[in-house]
Design a protein around this nucleic acid. Structure first.
Length: 145
DNA sequence: GCCAACGTTGGC
DNA sequence: GCCAACGTTGGC
């Protein structure tokens, strides 16, 4: 299993909206960047990830899971743009802000810190567990379901 | 609201 | 195929 991070501006698509989609989840549409698309092509059903609020909030606010692997993005006119479907798994009780992540020596290599513009990005298992712990989430339950 | 970083586009 | 111009993202 691999781990990921999905960025969204809460004004466009928020964690609350994601949660309202329930267990069937929702397409992660709108990615028009090859690097981000290629990461989504690598995703497998069951992969876990972070839901990150960019711009406003700037924090990891939730845990999500891939429920449908890459397929054509229904909002794109070109089928080369693909997306996965993800569902909300659980809240992060203490949202882990970008400031806290940057201040954490174990997380200096996170893509979030080093490539702030990439909207879908990989997270290592160690980083995932670390951020879970910082957010008050039991890493075991976040990583296993 | 500004602007740095980065990706994409298009002229040559 | 290079690279300047432009657009977008997202932190500040």
């Amino acid at each position: 299993m691999r781990y990921w991070l999905y960025k969204s501006e809460p004004a466009t698509w928020s964690w609350d909206q994601q949660k309202q989609k329930g267990a069937s989840g929702e397409e992660w549409t709108g990615v028009r960047n090859y690097q981000a698309r290629n990461f989504m092509r690598e995703m497998k059903r069951g992969d876990r990830g972070f839901f990150y609020h960019s711009n406003e909030g700037k924090a990891v606010v939730g845990i999500v899971e891939v429920v449908k692997e890459a397929h054509a993005d229904s909002t794109a006119d070109d089928p080369k743009w693909e997306c996965v479907d993800i569902r909300a798994v659980m809240d992060v009780p203490e949202p882990v802000t970008l400031d806290r992540i940057k201040a954490e020596p174990a997380l200096t290599d996170m893509v979030l810190v080093n490539n702030s513009r990439l909207s879908v990005q990989p997270v290592t298992e160690e980083e995932f567990a670390h951020v879970c712990a910082m957010g008050g989430v039991d890493p075991q339950s976040a990583m296993k379901g």
